[in-house]
Write a protein that binds this DNA or RNA. Structure first.
Length: 245
DNA sequence: AAGTCCCACAACCGCATTTGA
DNA sequence: GTCAAATGCGGTTGTGGGACT
């Protein structure tokens, strides 16, 4: 079945918005609130399609938008979130007040991608660009015997440091993506002969939701399972929260 | 000064998902 | 339960402006 066009294209303006169009849109939304985008253009006297109005409002006109450059903290936060969520720009934007998905997407494509490439990281996979390094890191994944686990837990630390850092060990989060599409089973994960519930895999060993036996605090397996990589506990929690929305 | 290239970002397009009759 | 409309999302494109030659 075909879809009807979202608007009468023959009678709509396209391209950059004029000041007058912006003013009309702002005035209308101030008076009537957001929503009902399909009927908004006509009601507001705009020769634009509803989608275009929505996009203009969300990405540019909304009063709560934070204009201006991204900070270094925002950069790093976006990178961390992207390593967890992938190209889920709206979810990422949801964790960055005042930023829009479109803005973050553009910023990712123009700045952060290059930044990661300069670090030797593939921005799509967050793996090292170096194939050999990538393969080594791949062994960190939820597999293998105890030696493998110990070896891998060492890999999570920089040779000359006691704590993992993204700057010097850009491969840390690479094979440990724990976003839902990569969960082989929704509830339990196999890890080197032991089972690890999804809650534990997210770094919530002490949670009452934990349904496995991995929950002992201080367990060395914690690092090996990768739940604490990049110090992303908070980010993981946020992701869970977002998914609940 | 003129022409070209490159980058950043706003906007568009098509598909997916949600909503409601 | 089904279907169409409405909305949301992510990928891609178009364009303006600055940098460079």
């Amino acid at each position: 079945m075909g879809r009807s066009p979202c608007c009468e294209k023959a009678h709509t303006n396209k391209g950059a918005w004029t000041k007058e169009e912006d003013d009309r849109l702002i005035a209308y939304i101030r008076a009537h609130g957001e929503g009902c985008w399909r009927s908004l253009p006509k009601a507001a006297g705009l020769l634009r399609c509803g989608k275009s109005c929505r996009l203009r409002w969300i990405n540019y006109l909304r009063p709560d938008l934070k204009r201006g450059n991204f900070t270094e903290e925002e950069d790093e936060f976006i990178i961390k979130l992207h390593s967890l969520l992938g190209n889920k720009w709206s979810l990422i934007a949801g964790r960055l007040p005042g930023r829009t998905d479109n803005e973050i997407k553009n910023y990712w494509n123009t700045h952060i991608k290059r930044k990661l490439l300069n670090r030797g990281i593939d921005p799509a996979t967050h793996r090292p660009l170096n194939e050999a390094a990538a393969q080594e890191v791949a062994t960190i994944s939820f597999s293998g015997a105890k030696e493998e686990m110990e070896k891998n837990s060492n890999l999570l630390l920089c040779k000359d440091e006691k704590t993992p850092t993204q700057e010097r060990c850009p491969d840390l989060n690479l094979d440990l993506r724990i976003s839902p599409p990569y969960q082989p089973q929704p509830e339990l994960l196999k890890t080197g002969g032991r089972t690890l519930c999804f809650v534990c895999s997210l770094g919530l060993q002490n949670s009452k939701e934990c349904s496995c036996s991995m929950g002992s605090p201080g367990s060395s397996s914690g690092t090996a399972t990768g739940y604490d990589f990049l110090g992303l506990r908070t980010g993981v929690l946020n992701y869970r929260g977002l998914e609940m929305k």
